[in-house]
Design a protein around this nucleic acid. Structure first.
Lengths: 134, 134
DNA sequence: ATGAATGCAACAGCAATAGTTACGTTTGAA
DNA sequence: TTCAAACGTAACTATTGCTGTTGCATTCAT
C-alpha cells in the first residue's frame, strides 16, 4: 500500500459494509480483506467514527458498523473525515520578500481553496451506496 | 516546503513569469524568490518544459521563459505536467480474494477516475494569467 | 578560453505513514 | 468469577518520497 491508502482503505471498507449494513465486522476481518493490519484499520476507521460515519463497540462480539444509511454517506464525508487536504498548497514558511510576492501568494492560496471546494462539491455528489453499485 | 510543494513552486513561478513574459530568468533567480534551491527549481521546471509550458536555454545568458502566452496556460496544464495524480487510489498489490472484491475495486477506481477528471476540468477553467490577477 | 548557465546523477536528511508489537480496557459468555 | 475477544493506544521500526545539496559535464556568448 502506498498512494492514498487511507482513502482507499476507507472507501473499500465502507462500500463493503454498505452491502450488509447490519453486520458487525471486526478490525481483523476487515484487515484480512484489505490485506493489511488490524491496527491500521482501527486507526483509519477511528477517524470515520469521529466523523460520525461508523460506530465501534469494544469487548466480546464487538466490532464496526455503519452509523448511518449508506445512501446518506457521501465521498465528501469520507474525504473530510480523513482530513487529507489534497489540494492545499504549502503554507510557505518563506516570508515573501516584496509585497508583490505576498499578494501573489494570497491569490494562489485563494484560487487553490476554490479548487478544493469544487472537489469537495463533486465528491458530495456520490454516495457510498452508489460506489458499490446501488 | 512540504505539502504540494512542486505544484506550489510551479504556480508561483509561472504566475510571476506571466507578469513579464519576455524576460529570461535563471533558476538561481527563481530559487531565491521561492526560497529554495536552483536544482529543485530545475527539476520542477524541467517537467513544465517537457509539457511545452516553458523553454530553457543553456549557456551564457541562458535561463527560463514562458513557451506560450500566459492566457493559454491553464492550471490543468500545470497539474498534468507535474503528473501528481492526487486522486488516484493505490493500485492494490493485494490480489482481491473473491470476485466481489475485485468488482468493488474496479468500481472504486472508476469512480475516482471520474472524480479526477472533474478536477482536471475545473482546473482547465482557470489560466495562469487569471491567477495573477488578469 | 572563460564564465555563466542548464542537465543530470548521487547522496544525505527529513517527514509521513504503514506495519508491528505490546499492553490496558471493556464486554459478554461460560 | 473467570476468560476470551475485541477495541484503544502508545511506542517502535522500516520504508518511501521528496527536498536540499554537492559535484561535474555540457553548452553558449563574449
Amino acid at each position: 500500500m502506498k498512494r492514498n491508502s487511507r482513502l482507499s482503505l476507507a472507501l473499500h471498507t465502507l462500500s463493503h459494509m454498505a452491502g450488509e449494513p447490519d453486520r458487525v465486522r471486526t478490525s481483523a476481518d476487515i484487515a484480512a480483506h484489505a490485506g493489511t493490519n488490524p491496527v491500521v484499520v482501527r486507526r483509519v476507521l477511528g477517524r470515520l467514527r469521529e466523523a460520525g460515519l461508523l460506530t465501534s463497540e469494544k469487548g466480546y462480539a464487538g466490532g464496526w458498523r455503519l452509523a448511518r444509511a449508506p445512501e446518506s454517506i457521501s465521498l465528501a464525508d469520507v474525504y473530510l473525515a480523513l482530513d487529507e487536504s489534497l489540494i492545499t498548497t504549502d503554507t510557505g514558511d518563506h516570508a515573501p520578500s516584496c509585497s508583490v510576492e505576498h499578494a501573489l501568494h494570497r491569490r494562489i492560496s485563494s484560487v487553490m481553496a476554490e479548487i478544493e471546494q469544487s472537489l469537495i462539491d463533486r465528491l458530495g455528489e456520490t454516495t457510498i451506496s452508489e460506489v458499490r453499485g446501488t
